[in-house]
């Protein structure tokens, strides 16, 4: 394969670039600027630059003054932006202006008053001379020989072994970052006879509270206690459900016999795709749409996926009513809720 070889020569010869073989054209002649010719124009440019720096200084002082003087709890109305915090906007605009004008001043100065004649600088070759390369190779070889790296096989092998092992503890020491998964992803705090309460207000729900076509966000009654005990929102991330009431005639199927209560169905609220909580419900079609990636589930048909990237149906929670007529769970979910994981099966 005839490859173009690396260049060693640099520069141009007979109007041809030695490196690229391209023709070399002389640098175009320089047009003087008005400020180069007319001292008045130069003077004006000087004043312009000084004005920018001057206004900048005033703006910065203004920004500090506004920081102190303008109240931080007052809103001002700026069309078309709308109401904004007076302190924020005055300080920000003056500070920004102050900074901006230093920039424009410096560039104006450079463009109008500093020399604008382009200059040429030669590049150096990147590759070293063959002698240098050879000398480096020699130095390296000498060092290798002096250390006996290639000679002492045992040293070399044990060293490589030791070096391979020594970072491992750093990985192992990360073990206590978190607990083993165990069965955590398979369980929620739902269990037999746990009352279903509304999310946010934590009130028990009677079947007649939910009209046909209605949707209620709900959680287990023991959620607040568990959250208090755990000090985190983990239980909520798994146990959140939605209750929907569908006219029994319209229910095509559900995940278990008798899991509804008079057409009230309870489904996990956590999307089986990547775990966003779902709440966009279309009454007419019984479709539930995830706002994150638009996975769509048919709640009248076992919560099966009808569209989008989710691969699995929304798990259904079997429910019934207790002796006082409040909705309760029959049991925990019968399958893991939320996104898939390797061991899920």
């Amino acid at each position: 394969m005839n490859e173009l070889t690396s260049n060693e020569l640099i520069g141009s010869k007979d109007g041809i670039d030695v490196v690229s073989g391209l023709p070399v054209y002389p640098l175009g002649h320089h047009e003087p600027r008005r400020a180069d010719l007319d001292p008045k124009v130069a003077k004006r440019a000087e004043r312009q630059v000084a004005t920018m720096f001057g206004i900048s200084a005033l703006s910065i002082i203004g920004a500090i003054t506004c920081y102190i003087v303008v109240p931080n709890d007052k809103l001002v109305y700026i069309p078309p932006i709308g109401p904004v915090n007076a302190n924020h906007v005055t300080v920000g605009v003056l500070f920004g202006l102050g900074i901006f004008l230093i920039g424009t001043g410096a560039i104006h100065w450079a463009k109008k008053l500093m020399p604008d004649v382009e200059v040429t600088e030669e590049r150096h070759t990147y590759t070293s001379s063959p002698e240098d390369k050879a000398a480096f190779g020699e130095t390296f070889r000498e060092g290798k020989q002096a250390s006996g790296f290639s000679e002492f096989k045992l040293i070399r092998r044990t060293l490589l072994g030791a070096m391979a092992l020594f970072p491992l503890p750093l990985l192992v020491f990360l073990r206590d970052l978190g607990p083993m998964p165990g069965t955590k992803l398979r369980e929620t705090i739902w269990a037999k006879d746990i009352a279903i309460v509304t999310d946010a207000t934590y009130r028990k729900i009677r079947p007649e509270d939910i009209p046909v076509g209605g949707l209620v966000n709900a959680v287990p009654a023991n959620l607040l206690d568990v959250e208090e005990q755990d000090g985190n929102l983990n239980a909520r991330g798994k146990a959140s459900i939605i209750l929907v009431r569908i006219a029994p005639a319209e229910i095509v199927s559900q995940q278990g016999e008798g899991w509804d209560y008079q057409g009230i169905l309870a489904y996990s609220k956590i999307c089986t795709h990547v775990g966003c909580p779902i709440s966009l419900y279309q009454q007419r079609t019984h479709h539930l749409l995830c706002p994150c990636h638009q996975s769509t589930f048919d709640l009248a048909d076992s919560g099966n996926v009808v569209f989008g990237p989710a691969a699995r149906r929304m798990p259904q929670l079997p429910i019934t009513v207790d002796a006082d007529g409040y909705l309760v769970a029959q049991s925990d979910f019968h399958e893991p809720i939320g996104p898939s994981f390797w061991e899920r099966g």
Binding site: H88, G92, G103, T104
Partner: peptide, 15 residues
Amino acid sequence: GFFFIVFGVTTLISA
């Protein structure tokens, strides 16, 4: 100067 322009514009937009 360009640094100050970038900083200035960022600040003005932020305000």
